[in-house]
Design a binder for these strands. Structure first.
Lengths: 174, 174
DNA sequence: CCGAGCATGTAAGGGGTTACATGATTGG
DNA sequence: CCAATCATGTAACCCCTTACATGCTCGG
């Protein structure tokens, strides 16, 4: 799974420009996948060269023109091929947990600060995902709702574990 | 946070060879950080050139010789610098959730298969982490235990959410 | 007037992966 | 005899990030 596969998926519903693709990636997709403009634009160019998408320039008033891309049948076939490839393992990378792992080389106050900060970030993400669910959760297919549910559950249980750990570490203040 | 920082952290306790570093990375570190030999050996060479570590060849009987690396004071200083750098955000990448996100373009049976497979993987990781905790959890600093607890909690709540989703999708069989 | 939003792109570099290459020993 | 474990390394490649470059419009 890479940027190309995700872009193919996004273009399945409707033609989009690079800028619009970046916006669609914001949330909830950004919870488990991300891409910058430095990836999106070169990928679109490559996909056009491969015949997976076609470009159409759209002239706008009061705004810069945009290049809107739509899927070709080759693009749709390529997306099918992705869906038939083996599912890759999830990968979770955490600087925070690496620091906890080496926690014996750091003082308690720094550890507590890191944990408090992680709680803040985790809570913020959970809230954001919950807001999304109440806003758009109604007319979403069940599989898409699952993405939101997993995001919410993961963040909430992580925050809870962090809170318990903080209590044990600082001795109930905070 | 990159491979160099993690290797510096591992060498803090005792000198290790590249092969031994790879083993230390297996679990529980591999839950939130991973590196292959193709990363480890070049990184060690680079670190030696920078003066962060020194190499010592250890002759072994019945086994190939190994190059054991130990931290220098520059290496220890470099690790301190890492600990004083801003904490990077966690990143979670999931091919599985991307497929769920685009679930409307796939049939129910395939979706159910993907979910069952994800449950299997998630359960397996939870079990593995729990085994680690009961085995080595006693004489671990609290911060290190937190890594295991987060790993266990995250996997368990993910598995639970997946099971509920599967029930809703297939209608309680399975 | 300045910053934010809209819009597209490039170039350099970082940080990894996979596969290849080699070779000894031990246990089934 | 074959596979696994121990052990080190290289080369090609992939995929992505950051920073830079450009430029227009609208609202405060």
């Amino acid at each position: 799974m890479n940027s190309q596969d995700v872009i193919l998926g996004l273009l399945h519903r409707a033609p989009l420009s690079g800028y619009e693709i970046k916006q669609k990636l914001e949330m909830p997709l950004s919870f488990f996948f991300d891409a910058s403009f430095g990836t999106i634009y070169p990928t679109l160019a490559k996909m056009e060269a491969l015949g997976y998408i076609v470009k159409e320039s759209v002239v706008q008033e009061g705004r810069p023109n945009k290049n809107v891309y739509s899927l070709t049948s080759e693009g749709r076939a390529q997306f099918e091929q992705y869906l038939h490839s083996p599912v890759e393992n999830d990968s979770y990378r955490s600087d925070f947990l690496v620091r906890m792992f080496f926690g014996e080389y750091t003082d308690q106050e720094t550890l507590a600060d890191w944990i408090r900060d992680e709680i803040r970030k985790t809570d913020a993400e959970a809230v954001q995902l919950e807001r999304m669910k109440t806003e758009w959760g109604k007319d979403m297919p069940a599989s898409k709702t699952l993405c939101l549910d997993i995001g919410i559950e993961l963040n909430e249980s992580k925050a809870q574990t962090l809170r318990e750990a903080l209590k044990r570490l600082t001795g109930a203040d905070d």
